[in-house]
Amino acid sequence: MKLEGTSVLVTGGGSGLGAATAGWLAERGARVAVLDRSAEAAQRVADEVGGIACVADVTDETAVTAALDAATEAHGVPRAVVMCAGIGGASRVVGRDGPMPLDAFTKTVQVNLIGSFNVLRLAAHRMSEADPMEDGERGVVIATASVAAYDGQIGQAAYAASKGGIVSMTLPIAREFARFGIRVMTLCPGIFETPLLGELPAESQEALGRGIPYPTRLGRPEEYAQLVESVLVNRYLNGEVIRIDGALRLSPKWPN
């Protein structure tokens, strides 16, 4: 896929990995629609990258459809959709106060897994009806999971389940979409400098960085964005899950 002039939609684009991806792709000529549930954040990033802002909760079919309508009207059918929207949170299944509230588990899965699937299905339908590009390609969908899908820590049952679901659906959907010329990929970032990580104390962040083999530091959002670019431009990447984590394998618990 050639990025110059290509219509791209980035969910969770108002901050963190999404904002970095929106900026990185815009610098390479893509026409970017920034989707975020925060209107202020979406507009701020859209102004920075010369794109448009779309406000939506990724679990809301009507709102996501409206965002795709806006992106299509402004830039044409999105040929690349990068899904960075998600939530974190940690809770033991059985803690001091009893069992984990079921709605806490449900919310995490609803946003991270079902929200990703919602965006994917709606965007892919539009791609499937668009004219084919070079090599018969019609589009690319990139989901964001996490190394927690493989190395989930204590307290990450809901988060790991939601990200593991994204990993598991990648290959079957890629196989299904092959007839349309739509590629499906998932990236699994390790520990990156994002607002989610910012919820941790500084000491914990530093300890996490020291635990990464090489480079011995937290990941930078632009490094995630660079990998997104590589996936988009290399048409032979399809149906795969790529870890980007500096060879990190999470320990059972966060360092104190």
Rank of each mutant, 00 (worst) to 15 (best):
L187G: 10
N238Y: 03
I87D: 08
N112Q: 04
F192H: 13
V231F: 10
G211C: 00
V241T: 12
D135C: 14
A80F: 06
L68Q: 12
A143H: 11
I244K: 07
A174I: 00
T21Q: 10
L250K: 07
T144N: 12
D57T: 02
I87W: 13
E223K: 09
P189F: 00
A42M: 03
G165V: 02
R96C: 03
L17K: 09
A157Q: 06
R44T: 13
A30Y: 07
A80M: 05
G5I: 01
I142S: 10
V228W: 01
E134V: 14
V49P: 15
E240L: 11
G209S: 04
G164D: 01
I182D: 12
T65N: 12
G165P: 07
G246W: 02
A67G: 12
D245G: 11
L227V: 08
G18V: 05
Q205L: 09
M127I: 01
R249G: 10
L248I: 06
E4K: 15
L3K: 06
I244E: 07
F105N: 14
E223F: 08
G211E: 05
E203W: 02
T62D: 15
V8E: 14
T106L: 11
V55I: 00
I154W: 08
N234C: 14
A149P: 09
K253W: 09
P255W: 00
G23E: 07
L248Q: 15
L232D: 02
I182H: 15
T11R: 08
A90G: 14
A80T: 08
I212V: 14
D135Y: 15
P101S: 01
G89M: 04
E40R: 14
D131Y: 02
E137F: 06
L9Y: 07
K2L: 11
A20W: 01
S15I: 00
T21S: 13
N234M: 08
F192K: 14
V45Y: 05
F117S: 12
I242Y: 15
A74R: 12
I142F: 06
L250D: 13
S116W: 02
L68A: 09
L171W: 06
V8G: 14
R179C: 10
A56E: 05
Y159V: 05
A85P: 09
T106P: 05
I166F: 04
D135V: 12
C54M: 05
P255R: 01
L120W: 03
N238F: 03
L187K: 09
I142Q: 09
E199L: 11
L232C: 02
G198L: 03
L237E: 05
M127K: 11
A202L: 07
F117D: 09
V233W: 10
D69P: 08
V119M: 06
A26F: 03
R126M: 05
G76I: 01
A20D: 07
R79N: 07
P189C: 01
T62I: 12
I182N: 15
A247G: 11
P221L: 01
G86M: 02
V109C: 10
L171P: 09
E40L: 11
A207N: 08
E176P: 06
D131S: 14
L237I: 15
V81E: 09
R243K: 12
D69R: 09
V34M: 05
K163T: 03
L200E: 10
A70N: 13
A67C: 13
V140H: 04
A149D: 04
E199F: 07
G164F: 00
A42Q: 04
